[in-house]
Computed example of a mutant assay.
Amino acid sequence: MKKIILLCSLIFIISCNSQDKRTLMGKTAYQQKLNASYKDATKSPLKKKDLKQFKGLDFFPIDTTFIVTAQLIKTVNAPTFKMATTTDREPLYKEYGKLNFTLKGKKCQLTIYQSQDDLRDAKYKDYLFLPFTDDTSSNESYGGGRYMDVMTTDISEENTIVLNFNNTYNPYCAYNDKFSCPLTPRKNHLNIEIKAGIMVFEKH
Rank of each mutant, 00 (worst) to 15 (best):
K27D: 11
Y96R: 04
Q32K: 15
N164E: 05
L10N: 09
T153H: 04
P45V: 09
T86A: 05
F54R: 01
E158R: 05
I161C: 01
A41D: 13
K2M: 11
T23D: 06
C181L: 10
L128K: 04
N191V: 09
L72W: 02
T111F: 09
E158V: 03
L7M: 13
L128C: 06
T87F: 08
Q53L: 10
D50N: 08
A122P: 02
Y113T: 10
T184D: 03
I5P: 04
K187D: 10
I155R: 04
T23E: 12
L190W: 11
C108A: 09
A70H: 02
I14G: 15
T168L: 01
M83N: 11
R120P: 00
P131Q: 06
F179C: 08
P45T: 10
D154E: 12
D50M: 00
D118S: 08
Y175V: 09
K3Q: 15
L119H: 02
F201H: 11
K125I: 10
P91H: 12
Y127T: 05
H204R: 09
R22G: 02
L6H: 12
D88G: 14
A84E: 15
K48C: 00
L130A: 04
M148Y: 00
N100M: 10
D135N: 14
C181H: 11
D126S: 04
F54E: 03
R22Y: 10
C8D: 09
S115P: 05
D88H: 13
K48M: 00
A36W: 04
I4W: 14
T136E: 08
P45Y: 07
I161D: 01
I198M: 12
K3P: 04
A41C: 09
L34I: 10
D135A: 10
T153R: 08
K2V: 13
T28F: 03
F12K: 13
N17W: 13
K48N: 02
I11A: 15
P91K: 12
Y127M: 10
L10E: 01
D118F: 11
A41Q: 13
K94E: 14
G105E: 03
L183W: 01
D40C: 06
L163N: 02
F165W: 05
N191E: 12
T152L: 15
A41T: 14
D50I: 00
N100L: 13
T152R: 14
T65V: 04
D118Q: 04
N77S: 13
P79L: 08
A78S: 15
K82H: 14
K74L: 07
D134T: 06
M199S: 03
Y93E: 11
Y38R: 09
G105Y: 05
I13P: 08
L46I: 07
I112H: 05
K52G: 02
L24W: 06
L10H: 06
C173D: 07
R22E: 15
F165R: 02
L34Y: 00
K125T: 14
